[in-house]
């Protein structure tokens, strides 16, 4: 189910002295099976925009089509859209509200009027996908979960609705490097095996560099860049201008270039950087002349 946005504007507290426009004339299209990183500094409009992706916001100015259906059309089944486009919020505590993990994950499919057998099957599948052991965690109290486990439980609750699109807002914030890797591996698996369209909203350039195919960069309510990961991340000046830091490997390549070495800046991981640096060291000369 593709998502199409046309000339979208959003203003908070419209018509009051506190009105603040958060989105300016946004147009974009997200196709099935894409893996997208949505990046930008705080308050750039990322979360506002993504709440249009599953019709939590309905446009007053501009249009949003999800699977070809206009979300502002009264005949569109918004509840169905929200089941199909799952949203995982930054703070899992805003999302988990039942007492136990099992009850929480069951909530979505129960609303979808699934049979008890179907609900049971979906809970098992969702818990397995996020790596929470069914026997251990099904009856576990939400309060007895660690930060990383809560995030997994929140994702499982959304997966149990069998979404076609998954929006993940800051899911790695507050997790340690190991927890981050584990949760991102879960996301990668969902994209590859379940063919779910994933939109990853993140502050971590290293995370998006490692995973996504396409990056949309936002600043002050506008889209300032949109393209393949390698291309967007290698535009170091543009990222720094809006207060983002390129992945460190790219910063290293950039500084080497400033010292006059001929290396490409578009590297996405340590392996690629090492191979480029070795190539540079083994090339006789290799330095551009300064004068």
């Amino acid at each position: 189910m593709p998502i199409e946005i046309e000339n979208l504007n959003h203003t908070y507290k419209e018509g009051t002295p506190f009105a603040r426009q958060a989105l300016f004339n946004i147009s974009l299209r997200i196709d099935d099976g894409e893996f997208i990183g949505l990046i930008g500094p705080s308050q750039s409009g990322k979360s506002t925009l993504s709440q249009y992706f599953n019709a939590l916001f309905i446009p007053k100015s501009g249009r949003v089509f999800i699977d070809g259906k206009d979300t502002a059309d009264r005949k569109t089944d918004l509840v169905q859209i929200r089941f199909e486009v799952g949203y995982v919020f930054q703070n899992p505590e805003h999302q988990l509200f039942k007492t136990t993990v099992g009850e929480d994950i069951a909530f979505g499919p129960t609303r979808q009027k699934c049979s008890p057998e179907e609900i049971e099957e979906r809970i098992r599948e969702a818990m397995e996908l996020v790596g929470l052991d069914y026997e251990t965690f099904f009856e576990r109290d939400i309060f007895a979960l660690s930060g990383g486990q809560k995030k997994r439980a929140a994702i499982a609750g959304v997966l149990a609705c069998r979404p076609k699109v998954l929006i993940l807002d800051g899911i790695t914030a507050g997790l340690d490097p190991r927890g981050r890797k584990e949760i991102l591996n879960v996301v990668k698996k969902l994209h590859q095996e379940k063919k779910i369209t994933v939109i990853l909203i993140s502050h971590s350039m290293d995370d998006v560099a490692r995973l996504v195919d396409r990056i949309i960069t936002m600043d002050q309510g506008k889209i300032v860049d949109d393209g393949p990961t390698r291309k967007v991340l290698s535009r170091v000046d543009r990222l720094q201008q809006i207060g983002l830091e390129p992945p460190q490997v790219i910063e290293i390549m950039q500084q080497l270039r400033e010292k006059g070495f001929t290396v490409p800046t578009g590297v996405l991981n340590i392996k690629e950087a090492v191979s480029e640096i070795v190539k540079m060291l083994n090339t006789p000369g290799g330095e551009q002349s300064w004068n």
Partner: peptide, 17 residues
């Protein structure tokens, strides 16, 4: 389960080569 700073990792890899 902690990360090593990227520059240190790169230096280590290059040393290995």
């Amino acid at each position: 389960g902690l990360d090593i700073p990227v520059s240190a990792q790169l230096a280590e890899e290059l040393k290995g080569k």
